[in-house]
Write a protein that binds this DNA or RNA. Structure first.
Length: 476
RNA sequence: UGAGGCAUAGCGCAGUUUGGUAGCGCGCUUGGUUAGGGACCAAGAGGUCGUGGGUUCAAGUCCCGUUGCCUCAACCA
């Protein structure tokens, strides 16, 4: 029997020690390394490739919505930053500030962007004069910095990569519609590309983005039943447009203040993928964003013809646009199986003398660990079909898992019991801040989003008339 | 900032109680044998024990200071 290595032992039982399992997997699979500055991460090539695939998929969707990419500066003058009162108040504690440059103290300190509403607002006010300039829809891919107290790779880091979209409109209705459209784009993307089922909805006042009129979020359930906010879309009303004087001359000749929205997803999505699909063997990556979709492991590679057959197969798959790697290193096959499983590669092909003789290949899928034989002469269609099935089955499995862990609560005890056992808890809520705070205090759970289209008789906390049904959960 | 813990080879750790030549596993290097679920044999390389001071003939070990990191609470995509 083969000796288990240290690494496999270290990937803890996922049910028992989920956060530790998560950190081990992220580091050991070489997605990231810790950066020299506390709370930062160095994203290694394998991890960055996932991000590139996410970017590619999102960019295609943004383009369909008429959104163009642009870039704005990293440093924001403090005076810009302080124009919107609630915004600066909300972000002040976590902003890093540059006070010295070129060896001299700066006359005005520069904030390292925690988000770019202020600088984009400033620029938009210069660009927009007429209703003909609207709507304006821009997106930027960039890094932002928020000086967090505790951090975890991908889920919460001091510096992270994201995209932030910003739109400017002539009317409130149009800006609100844009907010909802982008939320829908995120949901479709999360489910079809990342195989992560999400619940979208409006957030409570308490959870609202600083400076927004309304914040909408998408919430994903992790393996341990905790929620992760995987993306947000904000309707900003005229809050930023007023502060930054984004005005336009309308058809009727009147000078009007515009309405804006903003929306973003971050490298946290990579954390969401890991925590949604991963198992005790390591990563399980959805084929659409997997850096390597298929790995070929030669068996008895030194025997005549094996490596040649593997190379030929690789060429065919590559030509079909499949991201494929031939592992011709001199590690043992068993080692390679574990290594690539750990890295979450969706499909593995084992090809040895016996298969070549029989004109077959053995395919193993990462999500179910099932192995099946396929004829070599139709390898491309077999792998394409397998990748599509893995993608679909991963979403369905995650959805079934999540749906089985959504419960209803009538009172505080049930809320507590629900979140303690790793569930999303739907409960009636009167709408007051006191009840929301009490849930946090007693159950250590927060209001994630309103459950759209659901009603309840009374508030599960105070028993007064319920205004909404809300989803409570413990969150990352 | 409140509380607890850790710091010894690239990684994970033992050694500290009772001071006496710096250890183990994995990984790495070289050569050989292997190959359908983390192979085996042999030979190697690699550490001023986080850091500053003190006690002692002698400190990884005892004493004082200091720094960094981790977990929990508070803050958050």
């Amino acid at each position: 029997m083969a000796k288990e290595t240290q690494f496999v032992e270290q990937i803890a039982d996922i049910e028992k020690d989920f956060p530790q399992w998560y950190t081990d997997v992220v580091i050991k699979t070489k997605l990231v390394d810790y950066g020299p500055v506390k709370g930062t991460m160095v994203i290694r090539p394998y991890g960055y490739a996932i991000w590139e695939n996410i970017q590619k998929e999102l960019d295609a969707r943004f383009k369909k919505e008429g959104v163009e990419n642009a870039y704005f500066p990293l440093l924001i003058p403090m005076s810009f930053f302080t124009k919107e009162a609630e915004h600066v108040e909300g972000f002040a504690p976590e902003v890093a500030v540059v006070t010295v440059a070129g060896g001299e103290k700066l006359a005005e300190p520069l904030a390292i962007r925690p988000t770019s509403e202020t600088i984009i607002g400033t620029m938009c006010s210069k660009w927009i004069q007429s209703y003909r300039d609207l709507p304006l829809k821009i997106n930027q891919w960039c890094n932002v910095m928020r000086w967090e107290k505790t951090t975890r790779p991908f889920l919460r880091t001091s510096e992270f990569l994201w995209q932030e979209g910003h739109t400017v409109h002539t009317t409130a209705e149009e800006a609100e519609a844009s907010t909802m459209t982008m939320l829908g784009v995120y949901k479709e993307f999360a489910e079809n590309c990342l195989a992560i089922p999400v619940i979208t909805g409006r957030k409570t006042e308490k959870e609202r983005f600083a400076g927004a009129v309304a914040t909408y979020g998408m919430e994903a359930m992790m393996h341990d039943g905790k929620s992760l906010q995987a993306g947000t879309s904000h309707y900003l009303g005229q809050n930023f447009a007023s502060a930054f004087e984004i005005k336009f001359l309308d058809k009727d000749g009147a000078l009007k203040t515009a309405y804006t929205s903003s929306w973003g997803v971050s490298t946290r999505l990579i954390g969401a993928i890991i925590m949604t699909h991963g198992d005790s063997r390591g990563l399980v990556l959805p084929p659409v964003v997997a850096p390597v979709q298929c790995v070929i492991v030669p068996i008895a590679a030194r025997k005549g013809g094996v490596l040649e057959a593997c190379a030929k197969l690789k060429g065919e798959l590559e030509a079909a646009g499949i991201r494929v790697v031939l592992d011709d290193s001199d590690n043992s096959p068993g080692w390679k199986f574990n290594e690539w499983e750990m890295k979450g590669v969706p499909v593995r092909i084992e090809l040895g003398p016996r298969d070549i003789e029989a004109g077959k290949m053995l395919c193993a899928r990462r999500d179910t660990l099932e192995k099946e034989e396929y004829p070599l002469d139709s390898a491309v269609s077999a792998v394409e079909g397998l990748l599509a099935r893995v993608q679909k089955d991963m979403l369905e499995a995650a959805r079934a898992r999540r749906d089985s862990r959504i419960v209803y609560a009538e009172n505080m005890d049930e809320i507590l019991r629900g979140v303690e056992t790793g569930n999303f808890v739907k409960a009636g809520w009167c709408g007051c801040r006191e009840c929301e705070d009490k849930v946090k205090e007693v159950a250590a759970a927060t209001a994630r989003v309103y459950a759209e289209g659901e009603t309840a008789e009374k508030c599960a906390v105070c028993g007064k008339k319920a205004e909404h049904v809300i989803i409570f959960a413990r969150a990352y």
